[in-house]
Every structure is written in C-alpha cells, then in structure tokens.
Amino acid sequence: MLSASHLTRRFGDRLAVDDVSFDLRPGEIFALLGPNGAGKTTTLRMLAGLIAPTSGTVLREGGIGFLTETPGLWERLTVRQNLTVYARLHGLTPVDRAVDEALTAFGVLDRARDLAAQLSKGLKQRVALARALLHKPPIVLLDEPTAGLDPQSARDVRELVLGLRDRGHAVLLCTHNLDEVERIADRVAVLRGRLIAVDTPGALRARMFGARLRVVTAQPAAAFAGLLAPHGFADVLAEGETLSIAVDDPAAAAPRIVRLLVDGGAGIVSVAAEEQPLEQVYLRLLEER
C-alpha cells in the first residue's frame, strides 16, 4: 500500500535519513520508533510528499491522511469551519455530509459549533484526526498522536487508531511512547538515521533477548535451579521464588520443565513465557548499533 525504498534525505551536510526502506500494509499499525533527531518526522514528511527525498522513492496506492505533531487547528474557527476548509481543499462533495461523517466517526459532532480554542487537548486531537481522515485515505500517517494527552484522552485516541486498522487502513505511527507501541503496533521499526530493525515486537524481543520461561515456585527458587541443567536447560536464573529459564520454544519446553521441577519437589505457582518490556528491546537495539 505504501513502499519506501532507499529513502535518503540530507539537510546541507547533515544526513537526516539514510537509506530507509520498508513497506506499509493494509490493516496494520506500523510504529516508527527512534530517539529525538532520529529522522522520524523527516521520514513522515517524505512519505506524505511534503518534502522530497534526496534519493530514493515512495510508492503509494491511494491518498494519505497526515496527522501532524500538533493538531494545527485554527483556534478562532469552529470545529465545523475547520473541517469545512479541508473538505473544500480535498474537493469533497457535498461538503456538509463529508464533514458530518468525519465528525460522527470521531465522536465530535456535538462539538461542531464550538471554537477550536475551547476544546481540550484530547478533543483537539480527535478533531485533527477527523480532519486527517476526512477524505478517507487508505494510508494514515500519525506523528505523536497521543503526545501531551492525559491517560484517558490517550486511550481514546488509541482506540480510534485501532478502529482505523480494523477498517483496513494502513497506519504508520511515529511515537516515543513504547507502552503505546506495545499495546497497538503490529510491526515496529527502530530508526536512528538508518533503520536499525523492522519486525513484530515479539520477533524483536526474541532476537534481542531470546525466549525465556518464567516459573514461580512455592519455595525459594534457587533450590531447584540445579535440577534443570542436566536436562539441557543451561541458562537458568533464580531470584526469590522465580526461575527464569532460556528455552528455544516456551510452549514446547513448559510441560517438561514443570515435570522436572515437580519431580524435584517444587510447588508450582505459575508458569509463563517471559516477555522483556519493549523498552528493553528498544534500548538494547540502540545500544548495539
């Protein structure tokens, strides 16, 4: 649906984006992560056609809806007036129906007559999303959509983004909020000028930390760590009542490990695949490159 191929962008001597390639598919949320100055917004602007790449190409199937970092509403105009201008700029007809549909879809129809200046940050972001989606683009680029929002407003915006995915939009999400990415992204790209990694959060986690099983025992875990080594589980960490065991496949290894521990006299409280927070994955990726 959208394909970035060897995108490179220089600003004078500074290389902002270096040879970035990825595809964005319909019905997925693709998160672009990276530290400040990593080239995320520049990449987004190239994808949106706002600035040209120094080299490389962007192929798009269909229009783009672009939510900028700030809502960018005209504060002295009403919500309806704001959207009406954009409906006209996109050549939508009839204008009123297009605006009503967008306002309804994003739950702000009842605020249509309010001045944009009177809205809360969360509502402004909703209106900005409605504006970005007014012309029903199949591709949606979101630059920090929940930045500065309170938890409830951020959750509302996340739900709207998930709704976009459910309706088949291809969503590219640019954010620093790793918890948000963890919750909603199907694939993640880590950018620091160059693209460091692109994959699903699970695959990145496995790549950086490997798969581990977490077993909580009824007794101090250290007493059972030695039981596993003779059976091929060499990397076992014990802390308090918890064992962390490196495995190839958590689902296949769990029954065998539980049996070995029970046979060794352990009381099993819980068993689960251990997941490193995405933050750890992200930080390790940045450290390694």
């Binding site: 900028t68 960018g72 509403l73």
Partner: peptide, 10 residues
C-alpha cells in the same frame, strides 16, 4: 500557529 503543515499536506 502550526497550521501550515496540515494545510500544505492537502
């Protein structure tokens, strides 16, 4: 007012 970028995206 940061309203130019969305405008230029049209």
């Amino acid at each position: 007012a940061r309203t130019l970028e969305p405008l230029l995206a049209t």
